[in-house]
Design a protein around this nucleic acid. Structure first.
Lengths: 201, 201, 201, 201
DNA sequence: AGATAATCGAGACGGTACGTCCCGTCTTGCT
DNA sequence: AGCAAGACGGGACGTACCGTCTCGATTATCT
């Protein structure tokens, strides 16, 4: 989100001049607090307290808990979007899965992501913001991997991209985030082989 | 949970006699409240208010929000576990996926399940209770489908059951609960074909 | 104020049942807090904190700082109204002055009274409440002393009561509360003689 | 206070040069603010706002609310000290009382004086400053009236000066500032007669 | 006259209190 | 004894200010 109205730092003319170090402290505190109590119980007061700031410092930057969440979560999620290009479909998929698992294993992500996800079922606006800010770009990026494989002739031209994308991430997410079952060393390798077989079928 | 200490109904001699209609009203109110505000913001007071009861009526039955959640959620989840046996692997899998999708589409489930799931990342005891109460029995049930297919010769004897189970549910969960993307009419059919191809690879 | 709507204790039917010990703790805390920071800076939060109570406990009893002040101050002031009757004008006046000085010397009174007095210049409603609740009854009581002296023949029938009442208390108040100048042992005696001389003139 | 370190105007070489118009605007704003909200609630921010100045402009001149109060109040009080000399005791006393009443009736004085007085009970330093800056000079001035009357033979040489001074102002202060009771046209005249009678007794 | 420095207004900072609402605990009658 | 009702201490809400401190822009003196 490169053109958002820049809540921190100097705004064009006449705007308030917020201090960046305070902004950074609030962002850090927000994620820590979100991870430890969840979206529902997250209080602005606790975020400010954890950051060593006053409540007004928060409200000067974001009008509400939801606005703060949408901005910071989208911002953070976008950093992680990148399509691997290792030269072969097998290597690309294995790498993609490994990166997904690494991200989902991060203590902050593993606590925050399911929490925000759950909140989207209850909060239309948050859902729109997060889905269009995270899901769509990530999905488009992953599609690149498949299109490159088609160009290289590793996949047939009529490959079911939609289903392929679902296979690409869902098992990893399922094991790590949903059923919370540990993953063998060879799991990624076996998974990659099966995914390619499924896409070729 | 067949041997739990029966919080409702008449206890052995000398115990308190709680009124079953109050208990039932509280259970219903609990799920409605959980669906509408989430686990984090769920309050005993709101449950009691919705049930038209006093707060003490809740605390007489369950010592805490967590205990109430563990008991009622496990209780509800166990009702839904059943393995299809349609005669062919293809039909079994398609049926299993359809049933999963139907369950996940239920308004109460679609709001409550991700919410409790998110809470497990923060709450070890709740995690243990829900995973062993829901995940394990469901997974054992699904394994039956695959073992029957092996016996029928539809799958090789060395089929990777672990991976197969992951493929069986993860794409459906992924689309419905995570990326909240609508599902074509033919999706289940195409998905079933791919899953079988993957398991045979 | 015997017919006020009883903020503490049981109200007629259906009213809230407030706990008297909490009410008493709040009253004590109110006077201590008023004495230590003054009316202007007195905060409900500090009163509650000092009483070990929640803010809601205060607001359940009084709707505002001013209402709390009017009720508690009037209530307290009325307890101290009493006209001496020693048998002679000299003794009555000396006694009245001594009682006034004792009251004004009380640490709580000496801090609170001038403070509330100052506030009346700014707050019409508080002024009305305090003046009619304190000034008028006290003045009527003091008038009794003079009327009895007239009946006894110690003062002429046309004594200027109005002026007499002013002489009765103003020097004592002036020295203790205004110019804060210490008072000799013989001061009351000399003052009494002069007051009687003035009234007879 | 003739030797105070001149917070406004040019200081010796090297000192800061404060703008006198800003200083004057702050002084005016201070008294207006003091009259309208009282000492306890008076805030530097409100003074600066009323003066159309920044908060720093105040703090550059006075280190604290109390220092500002002590300086400005003492400064203002000293202007009003003057002993009448009309030729007779009766005329002097009547004039003194009238001047006192006029001063106490001034809207700013009637709000500010009792307020600062009340604050002295809580604030030793303010008490010292105001009492020695106002009470003492005023009392010495009033004593002149009585000494001149003794020299003229209107009062006996052993007149109780201490008590006389108390009689001179306390009733006026009492009626105007304490019991806030209106004063007849003839009140000053009757009061003057009684005071003289008391002093001669 | 131009350089330099201090004062200016404005306002962000960490705080505190506001009056309201709601939490889980506990108490009080009524059924 | 179980029930609803609700007072209790506590805590968070979002707002309004507080005194402190930091900004450029302006102004006033000193080379």
């Amino acid at each position: 989100m490169t053109s958002r109205p820049a809540p921190a730092g100097k705004r064009p003319p006449g705007g308030p001049v917020l201090q960046q170090d305070v902004t950074r402290a609030l962002e850090t505190a927000f994620f820590e607090e979100l991870a430890s109590v969840g979206y529902g119980k997250l209080s602005i007061e606790a975020v400010a307290r954890r950051a060593g700031a006053g409540k007004a410092a928060v409200y000067r930057r974001w009008p509400s808990k939801q606005a703060m969440t949408v901005e910071l979560a989208s911002q953070a999620a976008l950093k992680a979007v990148r399509a691997p290009d290792m030269g072969s479909l097998h290597a690309d998929i294995a790498q993609f899965i490994r990166e997904t698992m690494t991200a989902l294993s991060h203590p902050l992500v593993s606590r925050i992501a399911p929490d925000l996800l759950a909140e989207t079922a209850r909060n239309e606006e948050l859902a729109d913001a997060l889905l269009s800010g995270i899901r769509t770009p990530r999905r488009e990026n992953a599609a690149l991997v498949l299109h490159r494989a088609i160009e290289r002739g590793e996949l047939p031209a009529d490959t079911d991209i939609e289903l392929g994308l679902d296979f690409l991430v869902s098992p990893a997410y399922w094991r790590l985030a949903v059923i919370r079952t540990p993953v063998d060393d060879g799991y990624v390798e076996r998974l990659t082989v099966k995914i390619i077989a499924a896409m070729k079928a």
